[in-house]
Design a protein around this nucleic acid. Sequence first.
DNA 1: TAATTGATTTAGGGATGCCTAATAATATGA
DNA 2: TCATATTATTAGGCATCCCTAAATCAATTA
Lengths: 160, 160
Amino acid sequence: MVTQSLEDYLEAIYNSLNRRGHAKTKEIADDLGVKDPSVTEMFHKLRERGFIHYREYEGVTLTEKGEDLAKDVSEVHENTKEFLKLLQVSPEQADKDACKVEHSLSKESIVQLNKFIDFLEACPEDEARWVRHFKYFSEHGEMPSECTGKGKEQEKDGEV
Amino acid sequence: MVTQSLEDYLEAIYNSLNRRGHAKTKEIADDLGVKDPSVTEMFHKLRERGFIHYREYEGVTLTEKGEDLAKDVSEVHENTKEFLKLLQVSPEQADKDACKVEHSLSKESIVQLNKFIDFLEACPEDEARWVRHFKYFSEHGEMPSECTGKGKEQEKDGEV
DNA sequence: TAATTGATTTAGGGATGCCTAATAATATGA
DNA sequence: TCATATTATTAGGCATCCCTAAATCAATTA
């Protein structure tokens, strides 16, 4: 069984390899907010299960199997974060929440989430104006007049 | 610390009380897919921490504190489910995923999620047509012609 | 090269949350 | 009411994942 913790470690290793070119015990410990021995322990577990290459005192790299899983988790993380930012959640909090949510979604939800992100990118500007309207709604507690139709029409679009 | 498991039990108790008028060990065990002794054990823990009233062999009810928390969790569950259904995730899967996601969101994200649900309800029909468009995009892999503008205009709205 | 420093690992434990098997309480029906 | 079936609890264990303290390895520099 692939636990949430296991995924967290793989993702941290993946990110460390990309950012720093290596993944050492202490680095991963700091990144995940755990103590060094917890990382060593997990390195053994990950090696046993074929997710990483690990030789004591030399840091780790991902196997193909490990990298595949890490990429999947990382992609869900990024999409979830995008999604939360769309909901006007602050980038910092969106990132934190994405860390947890990324382990909770089924394949089906992940696929739909991906589609949604694609949809937004494919969306022409005028189609996606609801995003801007939601931002207004989120900040003011009511729909922008532009949207309800019953407001003064001259308010236009400029900085709604 | 309020663990995910603790929240799951509280929510299950809350739902059982609403649906059946009571919450017995076996019922909760079946609802959560765990064995009876796990429930008894958690009942003790929940009682210790002041979330439930529990007398051996007589089932449980929620304290005010327990009910407050259960309601919060339940609300996040419902909103998350709505949200996933909007993404065209099947109702069954949306419900399952909501069970896990409900424990992962920060206060900030929960607030924004609530706003988003409210926003959709406040949205006039023509404003919310992006929902329909996303459904089309999700099923066909491309934007509806109605939306890109460059399609045949006569295709209208009927069953896009 | 020897001593020091920092990183890593090993050893030993604790909390959580699950399990099975055995025991005890309660409810049901003959 | 008494035997039986159902439900609940207790006892004892296991896996996961975290911790501190102590030991070991590696790198640096005096």
